[in-house]
Each structure stands twice: as structure tokens, then as C-alpha cells.
Design a protein around this nucleic acid. Structure first.
Lengths: 120, 120
DNA sequence: CGGTATCCCCAACGATACTG
DNA sequence: CAGTATCGTTGGGGATACCG
């Protein structure tokens, strides 16, 4: 069993944010929905490397947190899409600095990663 | 092979950032080093719930990425501390919006989590 | 098209005990 | 104090098959 001693309020809300976008794929999913709603298969194409199983899991969790909404257009063949809620938009905003940091430091991180793996 | 829009440089650097602070604990560790260097045991106390094993793993990876430095003061009993590098400081900066978002939405997220767990 | 259902694997995480 | 060592658990992830 885990000892959750977070009875006192955390000094910062990072723990809250991480409950919502924690996990490997959620930030990427959110990012790729910034431009507007996207269908399941579109999200899958954009989030390179994710499996369908994991994608649907993560989407559902984000829907449950009211970060995304799922819309079923009741068609045959099926037509479903996912979109950021206003709440979700506020969250994705906070990801932007992280995004820019990554863009600026892509080469540096890649280099570090490379030299780290060559020195066991 | 049709539309290789995702194969060109990622639209955003989120993937890079996630390589560095991906994982459950790293953002929290970084956050708790903002005030200045801290010893192993201090970090452990601040990052509530982390085990020693995982903590040392994550610390080492952050050191390897040049986000932290480890300083061994060569004493008995051992005296080691960890501090953000200038590079690490730029990264921790980007976490701040996420932090604030969490603080502002703590109650809402907690409520959503609660109602979600009562509705299987 | 947008999922479900299974099975299986493995890396990450976790708890406890022990050591230089 | 700052870690190792060891063992156990978990859930992300791949592959494949199938359904409404």
C-alpha cells in the first residue's frame, strides 16, 4: 500500500496538473488538438507511435476530467471527434512554454542523450 | 507514406521536454530544488511519496541531462547535495504556468476525480 | 470507422532491508 | 547520510482478432 501523506496542501499545484496530464501521452494529445477538433484516426496519426489501445484509454481519461469532449456524430460509418473544452484550453496554454523550451533545446538534448548512451 | 507531415521536425518541442522531465517525479523534483541546493534526504522529504530507489534514479538522470549538478562534499558522514544548473533553471521556469494552473484548479480537479471514481 | 477483447512482455515504480 | 540490493507490483505497450 502507498503512503499518501499529502494531507498538507502541496506548496504548488504541480501535483494537480500532473494528475491531469501525467503520463506519457497526454500532453502530446492535448497539443495536437489545439487547432480544433480531430477524429480518432486523425489523433492517432498525429501522436506518432501511440497504439489504439493506449490512445482510447488516454482520451477517455481526458474526457472524464472535462479536458476534452467526445462527440459522436451518429453516422455509419462511425464519425467521432474529440475537442478541447474551454477548461482544456486553459490547460494547453500552460504547456506552451514547455513546448518552446523543447524547440529551442532540441539539439542540445539530443546531443546529451547521445553522449550519455555511449558512456555506460 | 502518404502524408508525412509528422515525420518532419515535430511541430513542437514537447517531445524534447518530455524526454527530459518525462516520468512521474521529475517535475516535482525540479520544483523542489528551486529555492537552492538540497541534500538527498531533504529532497526525499519534499517530494512526498517517492522511494529512495526511484529518487536516486531520477536524480542521476537529471544530472546526466545537465539539468542538475551533484556535489559531494567528501565528508563523513556523507554530505551530498543537488542543485539546478543554469540550464535546469530555464527548464523549471517553464513549469511555472503548469504550477499555477494546478493551484487554481485544485478543487475542481479533486471534485472531478472524486465523482469519476464513484461512477465506474 | 472507431473502437473491444485477449494475451503477453517488460520497463518503471514501490517497499523493505542492508551497507560504506 | 546517502545510497545498494533485492524482490514484488503495475500498467504501458505490442500484436492480433473481432464487432456494431
Amino acid at each position: 500500500m502507498e503512503l499518501h501523506m499529502d494531507m498538507m496542501d502541496s506548496p504548488c499545484g504541480l501535483d494537480v496538473s500532473l494528475k491531469v496530464i501525467g503520463g506519457k501521452w497526454k500532453p502530446l494529445i492535448l497539443y495536437h488538438l489545439q487547432g480544433g477538433p480531430a477524429r480518432f484516426s486523425q489523433v492517432k496519426q498525429r501522436v506518432v507511435g501511440i497504439s489504439e489501445k493506449v490512445l482510447i484509454q488516454q482520451l477517455r481519461e481526458l474526457v472524464a476530467m472535462n479536458v476534452l469532449i467526445r462527440r459522436d456524430h451518429q453516422r455509419v460509418p462511425p464519425m467521432v471527434d474529440y475537442a478541447l473544452t474551454p477548461f482544456g484550453e486553459t490547460l494547453v496554454e500552460t504547456l506552451r512554454p514547455l513546448c518552446e523550451w523543447g524547440t529551442q533545446n532540441r539539439a542540445r538534448v539530443a546531443a546529451t542523450l547521445a553522449s550519455a548512451s555511449s558512456q555506460p
